[in-house]
Design a protein around this nucleic acid. Structure first.
Length: 429
RNA sequence: GGAACGGUGGCAGAGCGGACAAAUGCAGCCGCCUUGAAAGCGGCCGGCUCGAAAGGGCCCGGGGGUUCAAAUCCCUCCCGUUCCGCCA
């Protein structure tokens, strides 16, 4: 959530920031929020005044009863009771407006970072690094889509996956299954020097999914288990970010660095019919996420650290890649600043987003109520949250099958992964 | 799933209608003492929110209710522990 107090003190700054996202309706929502906020505070102040009077009278009633002054006590009680009714209706009104305000604020996106590039859509995302590790040309074999190669090698059984679970589910087999697992272990091991490994729950509460921003606005994109009021996580970002929700950390504990392997579940509500073949888009996939909770001062550096770590994984596999920065018009709701790492897949002839690294400023910290305390200081501050896919398995899997497809029809396993694949050097029929 | 007992500040743990933001202990902070430290002693020591400030309001698992007044009584939900059942 954006900061209501900032909205009060400097509404123009918030307006100007949100305007960069290029969605005019946001400014209307903002105006509505400002109006509601004023009204909520006005009613709240009146309610508090009555409340104070009731508290005062109650004390007097107690005193009068102790002194045996029954008549005076009865009179005071009567006065207080009358105030009670007025307080009740004011409180009810305040709660109602407060909730309305909250619902609006939950849907208002984060303000972009000043250095985030302006732009209207993904076409305006500038390439900030690369392409790197790009060969001068690609062979005929490399131009074969991974779904064809995978089918020939027997490492991807899409038909049976669909039989089991329906469209948009995948099922790697044999060396393909091993490759999926190897990528996860590789990503975890490469970050184990500084990141604590967590194995979070894959089902989380509504509150947890609201903290990171997936709810309430994007409920259609997530799998809901209504009977138990639980949701399947679309990314480990959700449980990892909320790990310390409602807690106050010592500044010395920051930055907190966490990583997790998890399955990710996405309904892909708006993308029926897109990327239906192969491993590019599925309702369930594996991912290793890296994440940090930081002070505002640490955050900018952390963003680069996370990006470098994500890059190092792709570079270490020998895949052609580039890094783009997300422009204001293409940013996710919670994002303050983000970068994507894209791998080139010659068979699909496209750049695949394999990692997204983002800084959320205090937007998620406020929703999740994660604060920290500076040593020797009174009061608390909201943490900044950052995270990135260390490695999203299926698209890297696809890129490996395409890029390392040899003229003899085999697929060479990147050196870095072989130790996780029982020494396998290449996949053959 | 059934039964019983619980959920209070960073932790431990009192309080069970009125003077309770809440005893006490530990931890923490400041000072004294000390060559230094420990121990001792004295003081401070929760969060949120409205307000320029003075000051006010809210928070004892969540929500609702009773009452002039609720940490305390009632309802409900959630969570925990133990026992039983079931089970990877």
């Amino acid at each position: 959530m954006i900061d209501v107090r900032l909205l009060r003190q400097d509404a123009d700054a918030v307006r100007a920031g949100l305007a960069r996202r290029g969605k005019p309706e946001l400014l209307d929502q903002l105006a509505e929020a400002i109006t509601l906020d004023i009204e909520v505070r006005d009613i709240g102040t009146r309610r508090d005044a009555i409340r104070a009077r009731v508290n005062e009278l109650s004390k007097q009633v107690g005193a009068a009863r102790r002194d045996g002054n029954t008549a005076a006590a009865d009179d005071l009680q009567k006065q207080s009771r009358e105030l009670g009714d007025e307080e009740h209706s004011l409180a009810a009104r305040a709660d109602e407006l407060q909730e309305q305000l909250r619902q609006i604020l939950l849907r208002i996106p984060n303000v972009p970072h000043p250095e985030a590039p302006d732009g209207a859509s993904d076409h305006d995302n500038p390439v900030v690094k690369g392409p790197l590790q790009m060969p001068a040309s690609f062979t005929d074999q490399q131009r074969i889509p991974h779904w064809d190669t995978a089918a020939r090698l027997g490492i991807l059984d899409s038909e049976r996956a669909v039989k089991l679970s329906g469209a948009m589910f995948t099922m790697p087999r044999k060396a393909g299954a091993m490759l999926s697992r190897a990528l996860c272990q590789y990503a975890l091991d490469m970050n184990a020097d500084a990141y604590e490994e967590v194995r979070p729950p894959s089902l989380v509460t509504t509150a947890t999914l609201t903290a990171t921003g997936q709810l309430p606005k994007f409920a259609d994109d997530a799998y809901a288990i209504e009977r138990d009021d639980l949701w399947c996580i679309p990314t480990a970002e959700a449980p990892l970010t909320s790990l310390y929700s409602g807690e106050i950390l010592d500044e010395a504990a920051l930055p907190v660095r966490l990583m997790a392997y998890s399955p990710c579940f996405r309904r892909e509500a708006g993308s029926a019919g897109r990327d239906t073949r192969g491993m590019l888009r599925a309702h369930e996939f594996d991912k290793v996420e890296i994440l940090a909770l930081a002070t505002p001062e640490q955050a900018a550096t952390m963003l680069i650290e996370l990006r470098d770590r994500a890059e190092r994984l792709i570079a270490g596999l020998g895949l052609p890649y580039r890094i783009i920065e997300i422009c204001t018009g293409d940013m996710g709701q919670s994002h303050h600043r983000s970068f994507d790492i894209e791998v080139y897949a010659p068979g699909c002839d496209s750049w695949l987003e394999v990692s997204s690294v983002s800084w959320f400023s205090d937007y998620q910290g406020r929703r999740a109520d994660i604060r920290y305390r500076r040593a020797g200081e009174k009061g608390t501050h909201l943490v900044h949250t950052l995270n990135g896919s260390a490695l999203a398995v299926p698209r890297v899997w696809a890129a490996i099958v395409e890029n390392f497809h040899q003229p003899d029809g085999s697929v060479v396993i990147p050196e870095a992964l072989r130790r996780y694949m029982r020494g396998l050097e290449r996949i053959t029929v």
